[in-house]
Structures are given as C-alpha cells and as structure tokens.
Amino acid sequence: DRMTSQEAACFPDIISGPQQTQKVFLFIRNRTLQLWLDNPKIQLTFEATLQQLEAPYNSDTVLVHRVHSYLERHGLINF
C-alpha cells in the first residue's frame, strides 16, 4: 500500500518523512475508509474516527484530523 500522488502533494511532510510516518498515515487512512465503509449511511465524524482508531494510531490527533479532513474534502468519505 502506498500514498497516491494526490496524497503526496497534500501531505509533503509525510511523503518526505521517515518510512514509519508514512506507514502510520496509511494505517489511519485505510482504517478511516474502513470505518466509513462499515456504515456509509452514517456520517463519520472526526471524533468518532478518533474513538475507533486503535492505539497507538489514535495518539496523533492532528494527523488523524488532517487525514479525516482530506478524505472528506476529496469525497472519499461522507458523500
């Protein structure tokens, strides 16, 4: 699994950072998509996403918020 070119453009700090940071991003992105796909008729809020993310992935709330906002803005969740 890899970041898309659009994700890389929107998250230059992640793509240029350590490999582990990219893996954390990918986990948060994929898990958020999975959470929404589990029940697409219900809006997936940032707060609900954060509550359902497993530790330690829920510890970087800023990154979780950025990923959630990106997915929502680009019509990948909550459409």
Rank of each mutant, 00 (worst) to 15 (best):
L76T: 04
D60L: 07
E47N: 07
A48F: 09
Q20Y: 13
K41P: 05
I14E: 01
R29V: 04
Y57F: 09
Y70M: 07
R31L: 08
E47K: 11
L53G: 02
D13R: 03
R2K: 14
Q51T: 12
D38C: 11
K41W: 11
H74Q: 14
I42M: 13
V64Y: 03
N39S: 09
D38E: 14
R31P: 01
N58E: 05
K23P: 04
E7K: 02
I14L: 08
C10N: 14
K23N: 14
Q52N: 15
F27A: 15
I15T: 13
I42P: 10
R73K: 15
H74D: 06
S59W: 08
G75C: 08
D60P: 05
S59R: 12
F79H: 13
A48C: 09
I15M: 15
F25L: 04
D13M: 01
D38T: 11
Q52A: 14
V62I: 13
L37K: 14
E7F: 00
Q43R: 14
R73P: 00
N39C: 10
R73H: 15
Q20N: 11
R31K: 12
N39F: 05
I14R: 02
L63W: 03
K41D: 13
F11S: 01
L71E: 02
D38A: 15
V24E: 15
N78W: 00
I42S: 14
F27H: 09
W36D: 03
D13P: 01
M3L: 12
L33A: 04
A55K: 06
V24H: 14
L71H: 01
P56R: 04
V64Q: 00
N78A: 00
T32L: 13
F79A: 15
M3D: 01
S59N: 15
L76E: 12
H68E: 01
L26Y: 09
P12C: 04
A48W: 10
L53F: 07
D38Q: 12
R73E: 06
T45K: 05
L35T: 05
G75Q: 10
T45C: 04
R31I: 13
I42A: 14
M3F: 13
R29W: 04
L71K: 00
R73D: 14
L35K: 05
S59A: 14
T21I: 11
F46T: 10
S69C: 09
D38Y: 08
H68V: 05
F79P: 12
S59K: 14
E54S: 12
G75Y: 03
Y57S: 04
D60T: 02
S59G: 11
L44H: 02
D60R: 07
F79L: 13
V62Q: 15
T45V: 01
T21K: 15
F25W: 07
S5H: 14
L37I: 08
L76I: 15
Q19A: 14
Q52D: 13
L50K: 05
A48E: 10
L35G: 04
P56S: 05
R29M: 06
L76K: 13
Q20C: 12
R66H: 05
A55Q: 06
R73S: 15
G17D: 05
F25M: 05
V24F: 14
Q19S: 15
R73I: 07
P40W: 03
L37G: 14
V62T: 15
L63K: 00
Y70C: 05
Y57I: 05
R73A: 15
L76C: 08
F46R: 08
A8R: 13
C10T: 12
P56L: 03
D1P: 04
M3N: 03
Q6Y: 06
H65W: 10
V67G: 01
S16I: 10
D1S: 07
Q22H: 10
A9Q: 12
S5R: 14
L53Y: 00
L50R: 06
L26N: 09
N30H: 07
D13N: 04
V67R: 00
L33M: 08
Q43K: 15
D13E: 15
Q22F: 08
T61G: 10
N30A: 06
S59P: 05
P18V: 08
W36C: 05
L33R: 13
L44C: 06
S59I: 05
L26C: 15
G17F: 03
P56H: 03
F11W: 01
L37V: 10
G17M: 07
I15S: 12
I28G: 03
N78P: 00
C10S: 12
M3V: 08
A48K: 14
Y57N: 05
L26T: 12
L44A: 03
L63Q: 00
H74N: 14
W36G: 05
L35M: 13
V62Y: 06
T32K: 00
V67S: 01
H68R: 02
L26K: 13
R29I: 01
E47Y: 08
Y70V: 01
S5V: 11
F27E: 13
D13I: 00
L71P: 02
I15Y: 15
T61Y: 08
A8C: 13
V64M: 01
T49A: 11
E72N: 07
R73F: 06
D38M: 12
K23E: 08
A9L: 13
A9T: 08
S5P: 13
P40V: 06
L71C: 06
L53T: 06
P12V: 06
N30G: 04
P40H: 08
E7N: 03
F25K: 02
I77E: 02
T49W: 01
R66K: 11
Q52E: 12
D1T: 08
T45P: 03
Q51P: 04
V64W: 01
H74I: 11
L63Y: 03
F27R: 13
I28A: 03
R66S: 05
H68Y: 11
T4R: 04
P18N: 12
Q51M: 10
M3S: 03
V67N: 02
S5T: 12
N78H: 00
W36P: 00
Q22L: 13
T21R: 13
F27K: 07
D38G: 10
K41N: 12
F79S: 15
I14T: 02
N39A: 09
T32C: 10
Q6K: 10
Q51C: 10
V67T: 04
M3T: 02
N39R: 06
K23D: 07
Q22W: 06
Q43H: 14
L37N: 15
N78S: 01
V62E: 15
P56K: 07
I42G: 12
R2N: 10
L71A: 03
P40A: 08
S5E: 14
L33N: 03
H68G: 02
L53E: 00
L53M: 08
Q34M: 06
R2S: 12
A48P: 01
T32I: 15
F11Q: 01
V24L: 13
Q19V: 13
V62C: 10
A48G: 11
L50D: 01
Q34Y: 04
S16R: 10
V62S: 15
Q52W: 07
